[in-house]
Design a protein around this nucleic acid. Structure first.
Lengths: 148, 148
DNA sequence: TCAACACCTAGAGTCAACTCTAGGTGTTAT
DNA sequence: ATAACACCTAGAGTTGACTCTAGGTGTTGA
């Protein structure tokens, strides 16, 4: 079973431009072409696209994904490199989630503050309400940095 | 108390290029310049930079940050727009954290799998071990999509 | 047979967010 | 008074990841 580029566009949601671009960048080294140069994607190629999507979602750049694919093709001699890629990624994702948690707190504070400001029709009044001053103190080391 | 651009570079970690770029893009509409054109940043400007950093961290583009600053300068008539910006951001951050949680699962699975593969010296053996097949089934709807 | 259609390549264009260059001004230490 | 230094502007260049254009090929239904 093989698929035309149009089929793969429908299956993946990627554009045909993007699929050709990925190939040019070495992300799909196995895609076959028929006698007249038309691509015929295999199920294996589709699985690679799923993996590429995951690696992209985890924040890898295209050249890093290409590196991973090259390692994969070199076989078991590159297991250690691939393990260390996933370890690093996991650590980076942990940091990213911690970062987002901090940002989320700040944005939630702003949302609450502005909800109150809309209610009373004035930002300064809301900002100076005791409960918002306490909330700010609780959430931030240096609360004055957060009044813009 | 005012600060030269060099002082602000040290305080914020942003480059002087970036600070001038932000100003050109309308993110720092209040920075004063002395008679010979040299920037003198105020504490107020530094607080804006803190806010800009937060908005950038939350994923806003520079033109969206400029919009926010413009709304701020228009005063209480734009409270509703600003509230809705923060609401949207909070929702986007929630989605982003959910997305990262899913990605994290996949990457952690890969890390475990490769740790085992390194231990036994062969990827296929690790992949076919009962405990990894079960783990894969538990983690993913379509486990075969995840063998690359 | 001929128009519509899906596909092809090479290479140019776009966008965001910087980052740097060239050429100049103003201030300060020796 | 001159060299070093920090600063200035306008505008060009960079990077990553696409996205599109121009010009062409191959297949298929009326």
């Amino acid at each position: 079973m093989t698929y035309s580029i149009g089929d793969v566009v429908k299956k993946t949601g990627l554009s045909a431009y993007t699929l050709r671009y990925y190939e040019k960048e070495g992300l799909l080294p196995f895609v076959k072409k028929n006698a007249s140069g038309v691509r015929a994607y295999s199920d294996e190629d589709l699985r690679w696209l799923t993996m590429i999507e995951c690696l992209k979602d985890s924040g890898l750049q295209i050249k890093e994904i290409r590196q991973y694919i090259e390692w994969f093709n070199e076989g078991d001699s590159t297991l250690a490199q691939r393990l260390s890629l996933f370890e690093n990624r996991r650590k980076i994702l942990e940091k990213e989630m911690a970062r987002l948690t901090v940002v989320m707190n700040k944005i939630r504070y702003k949302e609450l503050l502005y909800r109150e400001a809309v209610r009373v029709g004035n930002l300064d009044i809301a900002t100076n309400e005791r409960r918002f001053m306490q909330l700010k103190k609780k959430l931030f080391e240096s609360p004055d940095d957060f009044d813009k």
